[in-house]
Design a protein around this nucleic acid. Sequence first.
DNA 1: TTCATGACCGTAG
DNA 2: ACTACGGCCATGA
Length: 106
Amino acid sequence: MEVFTRKAMEAIQNIPPGKVMTYGQVASYAGSPRGARQVARILHSMSKKYELPWHRVINSRGEISLRDEDSQRGQEQMLKREGVSFNESGRVDLDIYRFDPGAENI
DNA sequence: TTCATGACCGTAG
DNA sequence: ACTACGGCCATGA
């Protein structure tokens, strides 16, 4: 397993409830700013074997990227349950809910 | 080894 | 707002 994959998983696990990260953010944090697609791969393959808060990872538009509608609703509910609200268009306001790993210690 | 595949991203029209 | 296109790179066959 590549270093990128491990760091990406670590980044995902560090997302606190009520916050979200984009694929690109996770990839960038893991050392590959252009590795967003790999993050997506990690989510659907590793989230079954490891316990990853996969629902806290969304795309750069603040939308849920699942193709399956039922899964989309599921993820949306999980996020709502954590306090993440969706706007009229069913999107998350990233300016509010985006989690920045480096901005914690003030 | 090469090849195709993605829960993506950014830019351009 | 939308579509189209190219780049991206770890993974599995």
